[in-house]
Amino acid sequence: MIAWLKGVIHSRTFNSCIIDVQGIGYEVLMMQSDLGRLPANDQVVQVHTAAIYREDSATLYGFLSGQNKEAFIILNTASGVGPKMALSILDFHDANQLSLLIAQGNYQALMRAKGVGQKLAKRLVIDLKGKIICRAQPDLSMQSPDTIELAVEALSKLGFSEGKARDMLKGVEAQSVEEMIKQALQQA
């Protein structure tokens, strides 16, 4: 198993790059977001890799973050998710966001990733709950926009203006809508 590659970027395409490691060119498929963050050609790079072996092929997938690599491997264990779908999901939601969305059961936000429909999103929540671990402390910026909007809507129904509701939610570190509302009301 190839855990990582450290070498010089030889070239890149729409969805991959070729890394020259001591004269051997490894083609590594990557997320668009990681490809955009790679240094220029002829510069040294290190990528975490996951190898997927099929009957007719062996493919390397690369990640600038070890957490995204772990999430990629775990996503591939879910029913209906292959390597390309896993890359698509991680390109839209990094490992920490994905962990939070799954923990919240927020399948609607998962549906924003290309190719993820309602059925697959619900299956991801069921299959992956407790498997992808968030490495960062949750804060308002890590919460899904859906969760924040639901909390704002709920506070508005309680009589607060939208601006006041958003101010009340600043600094709230809860992961569920209910917890967010409770904390916001306690701070008001």
Rank of each mutant, 00 (worst) to 15 (best):
L5I: 10
K6G: 10
V8F: 03
I9Y: 05
H10W: 07
S11Q: 13
S11D: 15
T13K: 11
F14A: 11
F14C: 04
S16N: 12
S16Q: 11
I18D: 07
I19K: 00
D20C: 08
D20I: 12
V21F: 08
V21D: 07
Q22N: 14
Y26F: 15
L29S: 09
M30I: 01
M30Y: 00
M31C: 03
S33G: 12
S33R: 14
L35K: 05
A40W: 05
N41S: 15
D42Y: 11
Q43P: 10
Q46C: 05
H48G: 00
T49G: 04
A51G: 04
I52D: 06
Y53N: 07
R54F: 07
L60S: 06
Y61G: 00
L64K: 07
Q67E: 15
Q67Y: 15
Q67W: 06
N68R: 03
E70M: 09
E70D: 14
I73P: 01
N76C: 15
A78V: 09
A78S: 15
S79P: 02
S79M: 12
G82H: 14
K84Y: 09
I89C: 08
I89Q: 03
L90E: 00
D91I: 01
H93E: 03
S99E: 05
L100H: 03
N106T: 01
A109F: 03
K114E: 15
G115T: 09
V116Q: 02
G117R: 12
A121G: 05
L124E: 02
D127I: 03
K129Q: 14
G130D: 08
G130Q: 09
K131T: 13
I133W: 00
C134L: 12
C134N: 13
R135Y: 10
A136E: 05
P138W: 07
D139P: 06
S144V: 06
T147M: 11
I148H: 06
A151G: 11
A151L: 12
A151V: 06
A151T: 07
E153A: 15
S156Y: 08
G159F: 13
F160Q: 08
F160A: 12
S161A: 08
S161F: 09
E162W: 05
G163L: 13
G163W: 01
K164E: 14
R166I: 08
R166W: 07
L169C: 06
K170F: 02
E173G: 10
E173W: 04
S176P: 05
S176G: 14
V177S: 00
E178K: 10
E179H: 08
E179T: 08
K182I: 14
A184R: 02
A184P: 06
Q186P: 05
Q187K: 15
Q187C: 07
